[in-house]
Design a protein around this nucleic acid. Structure first.
Length: 534
RNA sequence: GCCCUCGUAGCUCAGCUGGAUAGAGCAGCGGACUUCUAAUCCGCCGGUCGCAGGUUCGAAUCCUGCCGAGGGCGCCA
């Protein structure tokens, strides 16, 4: 890659100039301003002090040396500002990018071995099996799935997992609510009041256990809805299966053997304060019932037996739970850093201009199924992936459903549709794309053309950083940028036409192909479809 | 009181882990269609990066303290 080539050349120059000590890394970056060249480095500023040199003088000497021994594609190296080195490159470096993109293709370009084949388990959504998946779950669903896609592209062995909390009082209340509705009665105190309970109760056969039947019904609904949203899980783990397998007992026994639990006030406690938690936590209540925490510890222990690293996607209302779970894993001998928790901040939902409060118990909710039906999975997913999970998000369903300019999903999908529009036009005109090695990419010199290639050149870095930072929204930003560059190209540079020379048409067809590859990769990472026409 | 996240243009948000004159989209104003989709493109307008210190060649970015918003501090899940 050009970045590494330039960095290596700078390092050689530093060595040739006798700079000591040499920096561990040479930073190369894309300057924000075009007049600062195609690439720049702050290496003189960063190393001058330790080497006992004046930054500007050092930069000047480096520039001289590099101009005397220019790396491939470099036409000029300039000293600028307090000691920056600005590199100007011939467009050939971007033609190389094009070749790389189309050679490596959708499957190969912007892939990395960051993960080195390590296994990672991403657990997300994990809605209780007491009702449908609602809009409150959707942000975590879109995030978790996009993160899994990123990890996969970066060389991790990924498992998408859904944890089913099918044990405990909520299930009993849910079952009782179903039974009451079936009998034509109101749900009990603290029961589930949603309309869906009425509908499902009407489906429920006579003589079945309402809790077990209700769980299956809810899971079926959740699975269908998530599938329609583009999210497929590899593993669904039921809490009851941990009871049946003895995993909970085994985990408790292990913690006891390790001396990490004690009895007090009639309850059984975990010594989580030994590992940085604020207070010790109850595992078994004084009435003999397990807390939520105990099976969850067993569950995480189980996940660690199946994957080297765990990533939990939790809502902000669960962040207080992180310290105790990490403590529990540490007590069991795991490295707490191998348990990551991505905290997704809350979503404020706006429907018809008014805020919607989500509450499954009261039945006041917007089902994800309805959102997908109304606005489509693509628009919904892109909306949720528009911004960092660290920021609280306001989702206005009217905006997501709109086909106007305020909705970015059409902007990016349109770019992809236009690419295929060009292909259709080429077919009509009888233009056949020649082999890449027979085409003169040197004809691609217009700024609009080069902008597309510049954007494509950044994708591998974007994917790597997005993966490392667990930040799929960076991919969203990039996709919008590439789409913008492509629309500009599309507007100004005709690919097929009487006044476009045949050679230029050929070069541009390959440019279009490289844009198609880039857009396909980006949209796929987000789980957004790439339509061929709109 | 303690912990987590956020505070950047009228609105919604980026900002590549410290770089040069802080960027997009929307909204507003003004332009561009005989040609591959005008669901597009171009220009203009718009900022004490919450406030105050600190770290250094250099801070929206890192540290500390305040202010404001949201979330969390159960033998609930």
């Amino acid at each position: 890659m050009i970045r590494d080539d330039l960095a290596a050349a700078v390092l050689d120059a530093l060595r040739a100039l006798g700079v000591d000590p040499l920096p561990a890394t040479v930073a190369m970056e894309r300057p924000a301003r075009r007049e600062h060249g195609d690439w720049s480095s702050n290496v003189a500023l960063a190393t001058a002090k330790k080497a006992g040199r004046n930054p500007r003088e050092l930069a000047a000497e480096l520039a001289d040396h590099l101009n005397a021994h220019p790396p491939a594609h470099v036409t000029a190296v300039e000293l600028a500002g307090p000691g920056f080195l600005n590199f100007r490159l011939a467009p050939t470096w971007l033609h190389d990018v094009l070749t790389t993109v189309v050679d490596e293709g959708v499957d190969g370009y912007a892939r990395s071995d960051l993960g080195e084949g390590r296994t990672v388990n991403v657990e997300f959504v994990s809605a209780n099996p007491t009702g449908p998946v609602h809009a409150g779950h959707a942000r975590g669903a879109a995030y978790g799935d996009a993160l899994a896609r990123l990890l996969d592209r970066c060389g991790y062995g990924v498992t998408r997992e859904f944890y089913v909390n099918d044990r405990g009082v909520q299930m009993q209340k849910y079952g009782a609510s179903l039974a009451a509705r079936k009998a034509g009665e109101e749900p009990p105190e603290d029961g589930y009041l949603g309309e869906y309970v009425v509908a499902w109760a009407a489906e429920m056969p006579d003589g079945v256990d309402p809790v077990a039947w209700g769980e299956d019904r809810a899971l079926q609904d959740q699975r269908e809805t998530l599938e329609a949203f583009g999210v497929d899980f590899d593993v669904w783990t039921r809490e009851l299966s941990l009871v049946d397998s003895g995993a909970i007992e085994a985990t408790l026994a292990e913690l006891r053997a390790l001396g990490k639990v004690y009895e007090a006030d009639g309850a059984t406690w975990l010594r989580s304060t030994e590992y940085g938690d604020d207070k010790d936590r109850v595992l078994i209540k004084s009435d003999g019932e397990l807390t939520y925490l105990m099976p969850d510890i067993a569950y995480h222990r189980d996940k660690f037996s199946r994957a080297e690293r765990l990533i939990n996607v939790w809502g902000a209302d669960h962040h207080g739970y992180v310290a105790r779970m990490k403590a529990a894993m540490q007590a069991l001998g795991h490295d707490p850093d191998e348990l990551e928790v991505s905290i997704v901040q809350m979503v404020d939902l706006l429907k018809d201009g008014a805020p919607v409060k989500i509450s499954k118990r009261s039945g006041e909710l917007v089902e994800l199924r309805d959102v997908v039906d109304e606005v489509g999975a693509d628009a919904a997913r892109l909306t949720y992936l528009l911004q960092s999970i660290d920021s609280r998000q306001t989702v206005d369903l009217a905006v997501v459903a709109s086909q106007g300019m305020e909705n970015p999903v059409f902007y990016v999908q349109m770019a992809h549709a236009r690419i295929h529009g060009i292909a259709r036009r080429a077919a009509e005109a009888g233009v056949v794309r020649a082999g890449l090695d027979e085409v003169d990419l040197g004809l691609l010199v217009a700024e609009r053309e080069l902008d597309v290639l510049r954007s494509l050149s950044e994708l591998p870095e974007v994917v790597r950083v997005a993966c490392e930072d667990r930040a799929p929204h960076r991919v969203t930003s990039w996709v919008r940028e590439l789409a913008g560059a492509f629309h500009g190209f599309y507007h100004d540079c005709y690919v097929i036409g009487d006044d476009v020379p045949a050679e230029l048409t050929q070069a541009r067809l390959w440019l279009v192909e490289s844009a198609r590859v880039g857009l396909s990769i980006g949209l796929d990472l987000l789980g957004v479809s790439a339509p061929e026409s709109m």
